[in-house]
Structures are given as structure tokens and as C-alpha cells.
């Protein structure tokens, strides 16, 4: 679907969270000039179109005891990457799974999985599980455990920034 400027404003208004008020969609709407029914209808349309992947509580893994995370990347033949990506994405400990642009020679890897676990040992076991999928052992791989989190927040659809302005 085409995401309108109004939809973007609505998503921007939601980025700090749905207000904890009796009529939160009315309150969000007031901020962007929409009435409550319109907010609900637009969010439903965005969800049905897959623009909104999910709507609800956005969990912070670390604070819930999932202290370890690793980004695991493979260099997989382009012809196979979709099939392999879907297979790996189905594991419950895989929280993101993307095909990304290669940047050879520095970065020839095209398949990215994010794995969250309660500790490093658990994440290492999960990586072994993925690597044991048929054929995966043959592909060059990089494992990048996170060391420090400097920032984690919702997306930015606003109109200004400290040093750069959005070209509208």
C-alpha cells in the first residue's frame, strides 16, 4: 500500500508509545489532526498491509533476562538465500532474519540472523543448531556477540534532528 504523509505522522506520534489513557487512539489523533475512528481505521489498514509488523508491547530483551545476543552472518549463494532465510527465521530464538547487500571484499556476507538468549552459552548452542541445518556448515560465517548497547529505541519519522533536517 502507499503510505501517506498522514500515516507517517501517525506512526511518528506512536513512536513514543500509545498513551496510557482511557481513549489512547483519540489522544494520538488529537496530536496529528485525526479523529479516533480514523486513527483506528488507518492503523488497521497499515497492519493488514504488513506495514505494521505487529502492534503491542515492545519488549526489551535485556531487561527481561535475555542478556546475550549475537548477530550471525553467512555468505550464502544468492539463489538459495530466500529458502535458507525462511528456514532459519522460523527458530524461536531468531529475533530478526534479513538478506542484506554484500560489501565485498570487506563484508561478503548476505544473510543476517539476530539471536537472543539468557546467556552466552545458550546463544552459542542456538548458533550450533542453526549451523547444523543442512548445508549451513559449508558457508563462511561470522559471529558477532554484542558487547555494549549504546542506544535502542523506536524508529524516527519526525521532521528535525540535532544536526540534519529532513528534506520534505
Amino acid at each position: 500500500m502507499d503510505v501517506s504523509a498522514t500515516d507517517r505522522q501517525l506512526l511518528a506520534a506512536l513512536q513514543d508509545g500509545l498513551p496510557l489513557t482511557a481513549r489512547p487512539y483519540a489522544d494520538i489523533g488529537a496530536a496529528v489532526g485525526l479523529d479516533e475512528a480514523d486513527v483506528i481505521a488507518r492503523l488497521a489498514a497499515l497492519r493488514d498491509a504488513g506495514v505494521i509488523k505487529r502492534m503491542g508491547l515492545v519488549v526489551r530483551h535485556h531487561e527481561n533476562g535475555y542478556r546475550a545476543n549475537a548477530m550471525v552472518t553467512w555468505n550464502v549463494p544468492d539463489a538459495l538465500v530466500s529458502e535458507i532465510g525462511r528456514k532459519l527465521a522460523a527458530y524461536p530464538f531468531v529475533t530478526l532474519c534479513y538478506r542484506r547487500t554484500r560489501r565485498p571484499p570487506v563484508w561478503p556476507y548476505n544473510l543476517f540472523c539476530m539471536i537472543h538468549g539468557k546467556d552466552r552459552t545458550t546463544v552459542e548452542a542456538a548458533i550450533r543448531t542453526l549451523s547444523a541445518e543442512s548445508g549451513m556448515a559449508a558457508y563462511p560465517r561470522q559471529v558477532l556477540f554484542s558487547r555494549r548497547r549504546f542506544k535502542q529505541r523506536g524508529a524516527y519519522f519526525g521532521t528535525c534532528a540535532p544536526s540534519l533536517k529532513e528534506a520534505s
Partner: peptide
């Protein structure tokens, strides 16, 4: 900080 917000995760 167990959750960051009630929100929409955008593809």
C-alpha cells in the same frame, strides 16, 4: 524498562 512502549513495529 521491561518494555519500551506500547507501539507499532514497522516493517
Amino acid at each position: 524498562k521491561a518494555i519500551s512502549r506500547v507501539g507499532a513495529v514497522v516493517r
